[in-house]
Amino acid sequence: MPDDYRQYLIRLIAMHGISEIMGALPEKEWVPRAPTLHRKLAIMAKVQDELGHGQLLLRVAEDLVAPLGMNREDLLNGLFKGTIHFHNVFHMPAPTWADAGIIGWLVDGAAIITQGMLVQGSYAPYCRALERIIAEESFHIQHGESICIALAEGTKAQRQMLQEALNRWWEPLLFFFGPPPKSELTKHQDLGLMYRLRNRTNEELRQRFFHKYVPRIQALGLTIPDPNLRLDKETNTWHYTQPDWSKFKAILRNEGPMSKARLILRHSAWEQNRWVREVLSTRAAVAV
């Protein structure tokens, strides 16, 4: 395996795995507060799947870093030290139940579009993990749709809660796929294309997201907070207002709205329970 191929894979897959673990945090805030028993069960299952996806991907990443003398502990430490980033979309607050719905519907939708590309990539262990992940995503999009449709068809206050959540998440959803081509931020895209780990640019994925979701969001009676958003039928391209990419760059420095709080939460839980992992990873000392 060429060294830069391995390095690219480690970067990609460790970040993906860590992002699943961190991505559980905004939604899990709503697990204990889910408004019905069915929702409570479903969101638990959903967040559990995310953690499970993190487990699959970290296992793949761990196998890649093993020859470098590293393990899971090192990957988590990379997160805490800021050398491994978690996905930009998980640095955002989720202040209402509707945010949990929007995450399930639209953030997961965006993730499926990306993963549908990555699963065709050149590294089989990653693809095998992604196949398992995508199979579970069918439930995830339905879970998110189900929450959002219930709110859209609910009371005025529920519809408003949903609209406000969409307003909050629209810009993060544009950030999701990363900056457009020919930007200083896209050098990793190019390497990914070269190693056949991706076959679409950020912008192509974002356009696909618009095609799939904009009509459906509007069908539910929601307003997308971008007056310039429109489909150019001739080129089949969506025109949209560019988000503020300086905010995106701040997130990459872990300076997003919830970056620090989520890192602290993950880090303190990891450290407080270190003694439990010692129990799992070392031989018993007490003779009974």
Partner: peptide, 29 residues
Amino acid sequence: DSEWMGLAPHIEEDVAFASIAQDEVGHAN
């Protein structure tokens, strides 16, 4: 149990413990 989600000591345990949480809520239901 559900309050542990995302915070359990070990990632595999987090997943397993989340099933136990669901089972308990399912039984209550």
